[in-house]
């Protein structure tokens, strides 16, 4: 089925049309995903609640944004369905971002990628979630920032008042996109799937991450050190 002649506007309308189709399906009893930030099981209110990390820093959160793509539902007897588009999840938005996905009832696991793959990274600019205007792009070197975690910081004897964890990097040896797989067996698919982003795991998973010593992660090499901590944050309730 090879299209013979496609103008950009035809492509756009086709895309819109099919996207709409996907949404329709998704609505009826299907999976949506919501990301909810927590710290030691307590909900996180951005810019206000203060938390204490294991290494003794008092922190708040001001930003948590990340790219999600390739959402796949792994089932028993049929192929998994994957959405290929990148969604920029901004966890600070009051109405949590729903990630549209497929209608489904027998999933055993759901998986998704955090980050932007090398092909998209090296392609030209795109509208929408990948628009560089969203501030998720390193301009000194080609590449999207996959995840931004920022906030304030206070600890005895530490002058620094803010921290910023920016993760990106799509080229070896610092290829930092990562995949998260979560068990979802026996869930009700009438409700959106709530994915906890357990921020305490980032700071306190062994060995604890001393944010006062590394308050800023801003390139691919530094980011490669924190990928496992980030992956560990995602959990289903």
């Amino acid at each position: 089925m090879k299209p013979l002649f496609i103008t950009p506007s035809m492509v756009l309308s086709l895309l819109l049309f099919t996207m709409e189709g996907v949404f329709c399906f998704a609505q009826q009893g299907a999976l949506g995903m919501q990301f909810q930030p927590t710290f030691n099981g307590k909900p996180v209110t951005f810019d206000s609640t203060t938390f204490l990390t294991a290494s003794g820093a008092r922190i708040t959160f001001s930003m948590l944004k990340f790219y999600v793509s390739g959402i796949t539902i792994h089932g028993m007897d049929s192929p998994s369905i994957s959405t290929s588009d990148h969604v920029l999840v901004d966890v600070t938005e009051p109405h949590n971002v729903d990630v549209p996905s497929a209608p489904w009832g027998r999933g055993q696991a759901v998986s998704f990628t955090i980050g932007v793959d090398s092909i998209v990274n090296e392609q030209g600019p795109r509208e929408g979630a990948l628009d560089p205007r969203n501030g998720m792009y390193w301009t000194w070197a080609t590449g999207y920032i996959f995840l931004k975690l920022e906030g304030t910081l206070e600890a005895p004897g530490v002058a620094r008042r803010v921290y910023e964890i920016h993760v990106g990097g799509y080229k070896a040896p610092y290829q930092n996109t990562f995949r998260v797989t979560l068990p979802v067996e026996g869930r009700s698919w009438r409700e959106p799937l709530i994915v906890d982003v357990a921020l305490d795991r980032f700071f306190d998973a062994e060995p604890a991450f001393d944010i006062t010593k590394r308050p800023s992660v801003t390139d691919a090499r530094q980011a490669s050190d924190v990928i496992d901590r980030l992956r560990g944050m995602f959990r289903v309730r």
């Binding site: 049929s78 369905i81 489904w104 009832g105």
Partner: peptide, 12 residues
């Protein structure tokens, strides 16, 4: 069953 009908696989 849980929002997924028999015709689910056709839909998939």
């Amino acid at each position: 069953f849980e929002g997924c009908s028999v015709s689910g696989s056709a839909r998939e």
